[in-house]
Nucleic acid binder design. Structure first.
Lengths: 184, 184
DNA sequence: CCTTTTCGCTACCATCGGTATCGAAACTGA
DNA sequence: TCAGTTTCGATACCGATGGTAGCGAAAAGG
């Protein structure tokens, strides 16, 4: 039980996280999510692959933390909830336009569909922090779909004219597919 | 050079395409795109993997043809172009809500980012047919981005309020990410 | 200088997309 | 009935990828 301020001895690990994050985004931007091999990310960061796996348990966890680092805190003020929602949409749209972020998002979510462990990782490292931020800004949470994730997608669907009904998986899949078509 | 009506001898191949298509969609729906292994698809279809690879050169080509088969022809009438566009959006939204289709779309497009060969496959088997259908319905093609693919995504972005500017990669990535968030 | 922790390197495993090979099945035509 | 032709199924295999194990070396504190 060492004091919290005491730094343990051993080889320094200073700055490695930031270097790996930058290398990850650059590699994903250059080669796509599937092309961003862990070996290539490690090479781009000038770091051994084992070092990455000592800090993140999987590629998905690395991507999730990398996205949190790239996005930063959601800019909520807490005054007007509707205004906050609109601001959040503009915020994530701008952030995700940065090199590599969009491709990283799409890739990790596609993998998450067939990997329950990855879904839990994403929930813990991506969804929960932003959910907490909105809870603190907006007060106590409602039990219906009013968190950030749902707000963004729900607003998107509402603006598309698919409103009236609660959001269903079909709508989300439709959106993904329509957007994905442009990658052709 | 046999006559067109003459069926070549040998073991029958009747109905295998349809069986494989159905098994592909079901497997993708149940296990996701990454979880839909070629071995699993073959097993679900009751067919040897080599048989699938004798008919489709790659997993991407199988998915592309499977999607074309699942979508069917785009319902264009050619009278009012704006009306056709709106109908096309509703059409693809409904079609892609069917089991497995949305996940197949998202997965194959994510892979296509880092695979030029797959991009060409998708262009040939997915984009070109629908582009031709719209050319025939709307007359001669315009050289600007007025084909179906562009129309769907462009209209989507327009309705989101991101209009005014030409569509850029950042917007598309932002959409993918926003939608993907809901998969958590 | 000694201990402790982390880093890098190599080797390795399981899985997946894709290929090669070969015997068996099934249809056509005589 | 019986070739001849073509496809199907099974197995074995290859390269790449995510992920792990083990070990020696580097760098920090004490």
């Amino acid at each position: 039980m060492t004091p919290a301020s005491a730094r343990p001895p051993g080889r320094p690990r200073a700055g490695i996280d930031a270097v790996v994050f930058a290398a990850t985004l650059k590699t994903v931007h250059d080669l796509g999510y599937a092309g961003a091999t862990m070996d290539r990310i490690a090479a781009a960061a000038g770091v051994a692959k084992t070092t990455i796996y000592r800090r993140w348990p999987s590629k998905g966890a690395l991507i999730a933390d990398c996205l949190v680092d790239a996005l930063g805190p959601v800019p909520v003020r807490g005054a007007d909830r509707a205004e906050d929602m609109a601001a959040a949409i503009r915020w994530i749209a701008a952030k995700i336009g940065e090199p590599g972020v969009g491709a990283a998002f799409a890739g990790v979510f596609v993998d998450a569909v067939s990997d329950p462990g990855l879904r839990e990782v994403l929930s813990t490292r991506l969804q929960d922090p932003y959910r907490r931020a909105l809870e603190e800004a907006w007060g106590e949470p409602e039990h219906r779909v009013l968190f950030f994730i749902d707000v963004v997608v729900g607003t998107l669907l509402h603006r598309m004219g698919m409103t009236g009904e609660p959001m269903v998986e079909a709508d989300v899949n439709a959106l993904i597919a329509m957007v994905g078509l442009h990658f052709i």
